[in-house]
């Protein structure tokens, strides 16, 4: 009796487990193309946002990182986009950064994914914060709470200093990754 019931228990759980795994395999096969297409689409929109003048995007791999080089219609390189992520206030923040390597400055940034608090940290996705970085030279930035008075100052989102500081740090890291891969911006 004892043995029988143990056997029945194992058989039941194994059966449910196998059926579940089979069903989920189908679900995965069915949804994964859509999920990948969504990610691709988000990335494409972000690259367009950070390299507004680029007509054609080339994906290149350097130092085992993927970079997106943007070219205008006459084939001149107008900028580079790079996707980078790091820790935020509630979870990882994923952003795309577009830079002008020749001028050694940031063109724009775009936030792809984040878990920040709605109404506070989530406002890093708004133009007011993102525009902080437009045209900023490469280097280390300082997060301030008032409208920036110096070139290297970045104004934090009101009430979300931590989210702002984290995003700024991720931008700095992204810039140094690009600098590393492209030999100091030459």
């Amino acid at each position: 009796m004892e043995k029988n019931s143990t056997k029945a228990m194992i058989i039941t759980l194994a059966t449910i487990g196998i059926i579940s795994a089979i069903l989920l395999t189908f679900v995965y096969q069915w949804t994964i193309p859509y999920i990948e297409a969504n990610q691709e689409e988000t990335r494409r929109i972000a690259i367009n946002e950070v390299l507004p003048t680029a007509e054609e995007i080339n994906q290149v791999e350097r130092e085992s990182q993927i970079f997106y080089e943007g070219y205008d219609s006459s084939g001149n390189r107008v900028g580079m986009a790079y996707q980078h992520s790091g820790g935020g206030y509630n979870g990882p923040i994923e952003l795309m950064i577009g830079v002008d390597l020749e001028a050694e400055e940031i063109i724009r940034i775009s936030i792809l994914n984040h878990q920040e608090t709605p109404g506070l940290g989530a406002r890093i996705t708004e133009e007011e914060y993102k525009s902080n970085f437009a045209g900023k030279p490469f280097g280390d930035y300082e997060v301030v709470k008032t409208p920036p008075s110096k070139t290297m100052e970045v104004q934090a989102v009101a009430g979300a200093t931590i989210s702002s500081a984290n995003t700024t740090r991720i931008v700095e890291e992204a810039v140094s990754m690009i600098n590393n891969a492209y030999g100091g911006g030459s």
Partner: peptide, 25 residues
């Protein structure tokens, strides 16, 4: 005896389905 684990397995399967459905659409 394996009631609860079985229920949890069934629930987890449906949850995974919902999760992938939301991520896709």
């Amino acid at each position: 005896d394996v009631r609860i684990p079985s229920y949890i397995l069934i629930i987890a399967t449906f949850v995974t389905f919902v999760d992938y459905f939301l991520k896709a659409f």
